[in-house]
């Protein structure tokens, strides 16, 4: 089961908390540290990590669509 991640790049301050929490899902641009979303619809196994990354982002950049949260 997949879920969806959206980012609002314009808000990103390049703190990199997302990368520390979920390097499979996020990276930072070499030139200015702005977030790069590596997977838009990742596997459900990464859901909890994605939630943690979103919660720790200090600029509310990351939105996780929880409507289709995988069961189990």
């Amino acid at each position: 089961m997949k879920f969806r991640i959206r980012i609002d790049e314009s808000l990103c301050i390049g703190a990199g908390r997302c990368v520390v929490q979920a390097p499979e899902l996020f990276d930072q641009r070499e030139e200015d540290g702005i977030v790069i979303l590596l997977q838009e619809t990742p596997d459900g196994a990464l859901y909890d990590r994605a939630i943690r990354a979103a919660a720790q982002c200090p600029a509310r950049v990351i939105e996780i669509e929880s409507g289709d949260k995988p069961a189990g």
Binding site: G14, A15, G16, R17, V19, V20, Q28, R29, G33, I34
Partner: peptide, 17 residues
């Protein structure tokens, strides 16, 4: 703020740290 801060952020990315 963003104009200046962005000149520095690449020096403080998770990987750099």
């Amino acid at each position: 703020h963003g104009h200046y801060r962005r000149m520095l952020t690449k020096e403080f990315t998770a990987k750099r740290m």
